[in-house]
């Protein structure tokens, strides 16, 4: 299953919610304001890093770049373009959008 998170973790808890509920082997794609969840040195970094042991975490490059945080994204989070987003949805059997 692919999870998408589109909220800043500093405003809403949908990223933490997703981290709590996703299963080992799932993937998480941070999109829109969700990309702020991939920032290095934030209060949520440890939780995200911990999750990376079991799930792959991606961030949508267009959203990262537009927000000026490309150089702030944690190591281990892979950036994908829209084509990569489409590939992720085909690679995993379904999508859970944590709206």
């Amino acid at each position: 299953m692919l999870h998408t998170v589109n909220k800043s973790p500093f405003d809403r808890h949908s990223l933490e919610r997703c981290l709590r509920t996703c299963a080992s082997g799932n993937a998480i794609l941070l999109i829109e304001d969700g990309v702020y969840g991939g920032i290095k040195g934030s209060i949520i970094e440890d939780k995200v890093k911990d999750a990376m042991k079991d799930v792959k975490i991606y961030a949508l490059e267009a959203d990262v770049n537009s927000r000026g945080i490309k150089n702030h994204i944690m190591d281990g989070i892979q950036l994908v373009d829209y084509s990569g987003f489409v590939d992720l949805t085909t690679e995993y059997d379904k999508v859970q959008s944590w709206l």
């Binding site: 589109n6 999109i31 829109e32 304001d33 959203d63 829209y82 489409v86 590939d87 709206l99």
Partner: peptide, 25 residues
Amino acid sequence: SEGPYTHQAADTAYNFIAAALEKGH
């Protein structure tokens, strides 16, 4: 589920769809 301009959802959906079509889906 969201209107245009206020929220990014319509843009993300459009870009996703354009990429999917480009890939032959």
